[in-house]
Write a protein that binds this DNA or RNA. Structure first.
Lengths: 145, 145
DNA sequence: ATAATAAAAGATATTTTTGTCTTTTATTAT
DNA sequence: ATAATAAAAGACAAAAATATCTTTTATTAT
């Protein structure tokens, strides 16, 4: 198992890609993005449509159109993307899948998971969508393969 | 998304259930276990068969038969179950799904994930299958609902 | 106005995961 | 030996996630 769904992995890689392009004022078509992050083009289209409806990425149609991020979007924490795509089960769900797991009715790993979930949330909260622009532009970080 | 697959959640809950029963020398049938952890009976059968083949749980057929854990099994770290069911992608895979992500070719979240994966592995390494027997017997911990 | 471009939307297909059904095999008690 | 019990195994089914195909809508440049 991975931490994120495949859909969410594509979404995160796509917004990192867009962040880097948007910082220099460039819009990107689905084709570009899919090539840039090595994802299935049409599937990625669906994902970005969804993020667009939710206001986490911007888009414009027609010639010279494409997807891009506003400066406000660039400074959103990455957790917004994860929440939009995978929901918040990663941050609130029981590690053993119990619906009624809670402080007063805990599963065996309740406290252990509380700790781990919190660390994941903290990491995703302090990482903004635009965090890695410099390293991405310099080619120090990879979004594909 | 959850950290573990549903299959793995059932597997962990089942071994915790078995640990508690096995500590008092009792074998459990699939029906018992499924009722004890609120899981689909036949599906759980498959999961336990698999763990049995891999030597992580013991079983005997026929009247008075059932599943149980040896004392060695009781002291195995929980990570053995996770590895057997979900593989080790949780501990080694890239958080963004990149096949070739590594120290020299890192994804943007490489270091962040290294840290988190390590914490998960640590937790699963120091938790043994029998860790929670006392609390389970006393009814302080829940394995169902 | 028209043609070209690119996202949006809806329908469909494939794959993986989860769950069920049926038959077989091993063990035990009578 | 026989019947009852319980796991093992194989085939099948349903649901969810992932991926693709086709048509529509909006925008821009000519």
């Amino acid at each position: 198992m991975a931490i994120f769904s495949k859909t969410c992995e594509y979404a995160i890689r796509a917004v990192f890609y867009l962040a880097q392009k948007s910082a220099s004022g460039v819009k990107s078509g689905i084709k570009d993005i899919a090539a840039g992050i090595d994802s299935p083009e049409l599937y990625l289209g669906k994902i970005l449509q969804d993020l667009s409806r939710k206001g986490l990425v911007a888009s414009s149609k027609g010639p010279n159109g494409g997807f891009f991020l506003s400066s406000e979007m660039l400074s959103l924490p990455l957790i917004e993307i994860v929440r939009a795509v995978d929901g918040d089960s990663l941050f609130t769900g029981c590690g053993l899948g119990l619906k009624q797991c809670s402080e007063i009715n805990p599963c065996p790993l309740h406290n252990e998971f509380k700790d781990i979930r919190q660390k994941i949330a903290l990491m995703l909260n302090r990482t903004t969508i635009g965090s890695f622009n410099r390293e991405l532009i310099e080619g120090l970080l990879s979004l594909k393969k």
